[in-house]
Amino acid sequence: MNTHRSNGEHLLSINGVELCAETFGDRANPAIMLVAGGSASMLWWDARLCERLAAHDRYVVRYDHRDTGRSTCYPPGQPAYSFTDLTLDVLGIQDALGIERAHVVCQSMFGGAGLLLGVDHPERLASLTFVSSTTGADTLPPPSGDLTMPAEPDTSDAAAVAAYVVAGARALAGDSPYFDEAATRALAERDVARARSYASTLVNHYAIESDKPARGGFGDIAAPTLVVHGDHDPFLPLPHGEALRDAIPGAELLVLKGAGHDLPEPVWDDLVSALVRHTREDRS
């Protein structure tokens, strides 16, 4: 049996809501939990990337945050949850899938979830990876380049919403030579068509405040930690990744050459190799 193909989507009842998750590979293998960035459904972790990780004897899980994809949605501008709730959803999915400890990979604003998990729930982590994230220190450089977005679209117009999403992805890619507009448009169209409420997707994650851990900060993370950052990231320039590496004891930094804030396919070889090494069960 080809065990690294998708095992299908599951609607899971967790923490009083429905969360849609998809698994890849054999559940007996070490688990990698992929936590997407703000306003991003599971689709932004490309299924082919998930399959490549699963082919290295990993059990890969991607899922829709609340207010994305097929998971529970709230009225636009009225998210009835906290950042901590979104973080606890990760543990709820682990519980539902029978995963005691996972290698958690957090992207962009949900690096904050990695911080909360690493400090307040270390017993549930085998390792942490931060992708295109930051410590949030005031001394770090501001965004670079042109991140000006067009006016927000009429959310009843699916084509306009997809075009808006593509414009955002193009801006976050910066001057990366790897931005693929056609592939991004196809992804955006799938994402918009699949969502319960894309109007909620666009705004609700940004209407909550990032919670701080109860037990400390980045310096208190004990899990083996990998930081992944593109050297063309215009939103969080590379010094943000370097600062994150320096803030976490023993953390390592992988710089993805040519990548912006996203994970374009030409850098997957380097990313997969690094994640496979980082998620070895025989780490010492």
Rank of each mutant, 00 (worst) to 15 (best):
L128T: 05
V228G: 07
D146P: 07
I32G: 02
L275Q: 06
Y59C: 06
P79C: 03
G98L: 03
R62C: 07
E100P: 02
Y59K: 03
L254H: 11
L187N: 11
P224E: 08
W45I: 07
A186H: 11
R66L: 12
I14L: 13
A80F: 04
D211L: 07
G136K: 01
S39P: 00
H10F: 13
E9Y: 12
D146Q: 08
E9K: 15
A159W: 01
L11K: 14
Y198G: 07
G114E: 03
A40N: 14
P122L: 02
P213A: 06
L187T: 15
T184R: 01
H240C: 08
T279E: 05
A54H: 11
P234C: 01
A186K: 13
R27Y: 03
S108K: 02
A214R: 14
V267Y: 10
S133D: 10
S197Q: 12
I32F: 11
D120E: 05
P237L: 11
R190F: 09
D146V: 12
E252C: 06
L147D: 06
D175T: 14
A21I: 01
Q94H: 02
A274P: 05
A163D: 15
G217W: 00
W268S: 11
T87W: 03
P75W: 07
A137L: 10
S197M: 05
L91K: 11
D95Y: 01
V90R: 05
A243H: 05
L236I: 08
G38I: 13
D146M: 10
Y74I: 05
L19H: 09
D89E: 11
T129L: 03
F218L: 15
R280S: 14
V17E: 13
G98I: 09
E51L: 08
A223K: 04
H65D: 10
A126D: 11
L187K: 14
L34S: 00
L115V: 09
R215W: 00
A126P: 00
I248P: 02
N29C: 14
M33W: 01
D154V: 07
P249H: 01
G241K: 04
A243F: 01
G69F: 04
I93D: 04
G25S: 08
A199I: 05
P234I: 11
V131I: 14
I93F: 08
A214F: 06
Y74R: 13
P75K: 12
I99L: 00
R215T: 09
A195M: 06
L125C: 03
E252G: 08
H56V: 01
V161L: 11
A173F: 09
S39F: 06
H4A: 15
